[in-house]
Write a protein that binds this DNA or RNA. Structure first.
Lengths: 217, 217
DNA sequence: GAGAAATTGTGAAATATTGCACATAGGTAC
DNA sequence: GTACCTATGTGCAATATTTCACAATTTCTC
């Protein structure tokens, strides 16, 4: 395949998941992997792996498998994670401060270039990563001059929509939202929500089912 | 409906999402809401809302809508988030420390009752929430005596599987995994993954598409 | 170099999920 | 108590996603 078919959203999600074990395999010196083994490492069906990749081209060798380094590079290219991206963050509570220092982000070329908070008591604080927390009033100017690609929202829920609006007004086209509030955006801006408490409630549903029936629901 | 049909996983995920705006509506004094308005608040289709709820019973009044307080209570009961649940956490880096203090967890009745780390330099630290970081060697005994329901993994990827194994050995049946490593568990243990970097790479894919075509992929 | 073994890429079937469209029923006005 | 308005609950069609199953291709063995 490899032409411009509409790619299913779950496929994109899984491509990123495939890259995690590939990174480990590359480090550990494994050069080739089959769809079956990669699938097992990711907890999915082998045909799924092959079909997901087939949307973008032919990356494997029949009878052999996939070259680990090549496949990882191909997936990164597809996703766009072979480039460096500039992030800013709004809301510097416990979570915000943890995210700014997060190793997983750094390792993959995501760089935080600005941090904002609406609380004047936090403004001016120098963070371990070298950034200084700035007031929301400086957001537009900073985001524009630093050419921020992605905005991270880690503020309290009532402020989330305002943060999103400010980011979009400053030209940001992608938002990673850690607040449990839904943010509304026009079609031109992509949002991904990371809501822990939704995941927790999911777990709790299954736990309850286990207690009732002895099996997950 | 209301009988024991197999409930789709996306339905469970959305139920938790519905409860977020319902909490706000309840606080703001709104007593009744239609599936259409709730759907708009959550960014889904109104029929979806009705169908999701219909799996569990009839909660609305035709011609009127849903009573906000009743619906929220019903959803919490369905999910099991009307109960208190005991959590422990493994891995007390920046993220772990932020999660333990997180307001969204506390507010919804999720209580952290123990915190562990494999790094002896962190062990013994007293956290703002009152817990003291304990060595991994104490995990089994503590988790059993405190009757922990859910284990949260926020350690570095290479240690994630070991953390999961220890938690399961101590009888934990549900794991919330923040590490980008896949953890393997037997069927009796439920895992939910919260992988920020996967979400980020998703965003980046769409950003790249916007740059190429002017529209999200 | 022919046959066996392995593993990809993919059309087609199976399954799952979503959304439409409308019958059904509660509430309100007169 | 009848007519009308509104919004739920749901059968069914449409769409999306996953999985199967196998032909195609490469490597290995003798």
């Amino acid at each position: 395949m490899g032409n411009e078919t509409k790619i299913p959203a779950p496929t994109i999600e899984r491509l990123a998941q495939y890259s995690r074990p590939l990174e480990s395999l590359l480090e550990s010196g494994t050069t080739v992997i089959s769809s079956e083994k990669l699938a097992r490492l990711c907890g999915v069906n082998p045909a799924q792996v092959r079909k997901d990749l087939a949307y973008f081209g032919e990356f494997g060798v029949r009878g052999v498998g996939y070259d680990v380094a090549d496949l990882l590079a191909a997936i990164k290219k597809i996703l766009g994670s072979d480039q460096e991206w500039a992030l800013c963050i709004v809301g510097m509570g416990n979570l915000g401060r943890a995210l700014v220092e997060n190793e997983n982000f750094k390792k993959r070329g995501y760089r935080f270039v600005a941090a904002f908070d609406s609380d004047s008591r936090r403004v001016g604080t120098r963070l371990p990563c070298g950034l200084t927390i700035q007031p929301i009033s400086r957001l537009k100017e900073e985001v524009e001059s630093l050419m921020v690609d992605i905005g991270v929202i880690s503020c309290i829920p009532p402020e989330a929509q305002r943060a999103a609006d400010l980011l979009m007004d400053a030209g940001v086209k992608a938002i990673l939202n850690f607040s449990p509030a839904q943010v509304r955006t026009p079609e031109c801006c992509v949002v991904q929500n990371v809501d822990f408490s939704v995941k927790l409630e999911n777990l709790v549903y299954h736990l309850q089912k286990i207690e009732e029936t002895g099996r997950p629901g």
